[in-house]
Amino acid sequence: MHATLCEHLLDLVQNAVEAGASFVQVEVVETEAGDVEVTVSDNGRGMTPEEARRALDPFASDGRKHPARRVGLGLPFFRQMVEQAGGEFDLRSELGVGTSVFGRYRGDHPDAPPMGEWSDFVVQALVLGEGLEMALIREWRGRRVVIRRSELAEALQGLGDAEALALARRYVGEQEREILGKG
């Protein structure tokens, strides 16, 4: 089980990229009332209802990546986390259209995970899928910041090297502090 929400997010983004998506959106909304709402959606190949059911089984894998493997833990971990924190989980997927994963839980529930490092998550997600667009959205009590992969890649003339990634991390960190009122 992952320790922070950002660890779950990275896992889910990886699923989206592996599903052949050209667009991935991650949205984390922390409401005034203390709810945390998480949505990860993609326009990848999507799943049939049967595949979606199997994707939630930790002891199932489609075997495409690792033929002998009998586990697939990304989605089950996220679902377990949400449900442990007393929240609701939803998975919607349509073959050929894409997949959307949703979770909502109370941020102050004893079993709710800490956020983790948002800026690190963003940078790690950005290097995953080259050539695909990502929108990574963080909202805190109505204040919102949207990081688009294309915008950052353009400003930094590519995200290929360590220097660009260190700058991106700093930029995302400052954007985050601003919405959290710590800027």
Partner: peptide
Amino acid sequence: RETFDAFVEALAAHPGLKHVAVRQ
């Protein structure tokens, strides 16, 4: 994730290594 960050920061801080690509 911590390993990734450690590489990004260590390489970016080094003039001879800051253009090494870091991927996952």
